[in-house]
Simulated assay, not measured.
Amino acid sequence: MKQITATTLKYFSLIVACLVTLLPIGVIFMAAFKTKQEFRDTGPFDVPQSFNLDNFVTAFTKGQMVQGFVNTVIILAVAITGTIIIGTMAAYAIDRFRFRGRTLVLGGFLLATLVPAVTTQVATFQVINSLGLYNTRAAVMLLFMGTDIVSIYIFVQFMRSIDKSLDEAAVLDGANHLTIYGRIILPLLKPAIATVVIIKGIAIYNEFYIPFLYMPSRDLGVISTSLFRFKGPFGAQWEVISAGVIIVLIPTLLLFLFLQRYIYNGLTSGATK
């Protein structure tokens, strides 16, 4: 009896959680296909009389969503590439080498995660401004490229599953550390790299604060800031704002649906190895 009750409560809570999550998305989806008059005269859950696509056209053209996608893709490509290179090299050095201060380095990574990012923004902004990178893509790329402890943790856990005898055999064949890293370690870290690409990519795609602060120019707007700017010229046109939200949601949703098994497998493997 207790098992039946626990199972019932479990599935009931899952159903409630799904409804709470999908309800706002459903309202936005309905609003995105309504005309301005229809949006005012109908309820939030009413199905549109004719699925109007003009809102999406307005979002793409006047909202500069295309430019936002282009800027986002450029920043994503550079930042994720830098994150992978820095993260895998750091994990390789931490796991394979025994050096003085190694424990201090690991402690420094952990300590950095305890410091709220907003408390360092004044100093960070001064550094970026002094380098002449303010209001450029390079500023955001540089900040995103900084590898977080989660990425390093995933790479280190996968690194520990790679037998060190491979390194020793490569050394006997005359390979140096850079060759071992590039030809042995990096290819074997593909599952971890896929996991970091997905997690970091979604985080960068959804990031608003850093692009908004360091790239105020409208031409440098990314997806999140382009959507935020709808509050100005489209402040009263909620149907256009809803269309913009759907445009932003679709790439993330498709990426997660197609690659979710890599996220789960990568995190699970990284936690147990």
Score class of each variant (00 low, 15 high):
Gln67His: 07
Cys18Trp: 01
Val78Phe: 14
Val248Ser: 14
Asp167Thr: 15
Thr5Pro: 00
Pro233Phe: 10
Lys34Pro: 05
Ile210Gln: 09
Asp167Gly: 12
Gly266Thr: 07
Leu110Met: 14
Val248His: 05
Leu213Asn: 11
Ser130Glu: 12
Phe97Gln: 09
Ser161Glu: 09
Ile184Trp: 10
Lys10Gly: 05
Ile184His: 03
Thr124Cys: 08
Asn176Ser: 05
Gln260Asn: 12
Thr42Arg: 14
Met1Val: 10
Ser269Arg: 12
Arg137Trp: 08
Pro116Tyr: 09
Asn129Lys: 15
Ser226Ala: 11
Tyr214Asp: 03
Leu143Thr: 14
Arg137Ser: 06
Ala170His: 07
Val66Arg: 04
Leu267Cys: 02
Tyr11Val: 05
Arg40Val: 12
Thr58Phe: 02
Tyr153Gln: 10
Met159Cys: 07
Ala93Arg: 02
Lys273Asp: 03
Phe208Asp: 05
Leu104Pro: 00
Met215Trp: 05
Leu142Gly: 05
Gln157Thr: 13
Val222Tyr: 05
Lys62Ser: 09
Ala194Ile: 11
Asp173Thr: 09
Gly201Glu: 02
Arg102Glu: 12
Phe208Val: 05
Val105Phe: 15
Tyr262Lys: 10
Met1Arg: 09
Thr83Glu: 07
Glu38Arg: 02
Thr179Leu: 08
Thr81Trp: 02
Lys273Pro: 00
Pro44Asn: 02
Leu257Ala: 13
Val47Asp: 06
Ile74Tyr: 11
Val122Trp: 11
Val156Ala: 11
Ser13Cys: 07
Ala91Val: 09
Gln237Pro: 00
Asp54Val: 04
Leu166Gln: 13
Asp41Lys: 13
Leu255Phe: 12
Leu23His: 04
Phe45Ala: 07
Arg183Ile: 06
Val16Lys: 03
Phe256Asp: 00
Ala31Val: 01
Ile15Lys: 03
Asp148Lys: 13
Leu254Tyr: 04
Glu168Asp: 14
Ala169Tyr: 08
Ile250Cys: 04
Ile180Val: 13
Phe39Glu: 03
Met30Ser: 13
Ile25Asp: 03
Gly87Cys: 09
Gly132Asn: 08
Phe56Tyr: 14
Ser161Pro: 03
Trp238Phe: 15
Ile84Cys: 03
Ala17Asp: 00
Glu207Asp: 15
Phe234Ile: 08
Ala17Gln: 00
Pro233Asn: 14
Thr136Tyr: 08
Pro233Lys: 10
Phe258Cys: 00
Leu142Lys: 10
Ser130Pro: 02
Gln157Pro: 02
Lys62Tyr: 10
Pro191Tyr: 13
Ser161Lys: 10
Arg102His: 10
Leu257Glu: 01
Glu168Thr: 13
Leu110Lys: 02
Val57Asn: 11
Lys231Ile: 12
Thr58Tyr: 09
Gln49Gly: 07
Lys10Trp: 06
Phe56Ser: 06
Ala93Ile: 15
Arg100Gln: 09
Val57Met: 09
Thr272Pro: 00
Ile154Met: 08
Val105Gln: 07
Phe109Gly: 01
Gly270Val: 06
Leu53Trp: 14
Pro24Gly: 08
Leu178Ala: 14
Gly132Met: 13
Tyr11Ile: 09
Ser165Phe: 09
Pro216Tyr: 11
Ala203Ile: 06
Leu255Gln: 02
Ile80Asn: 01
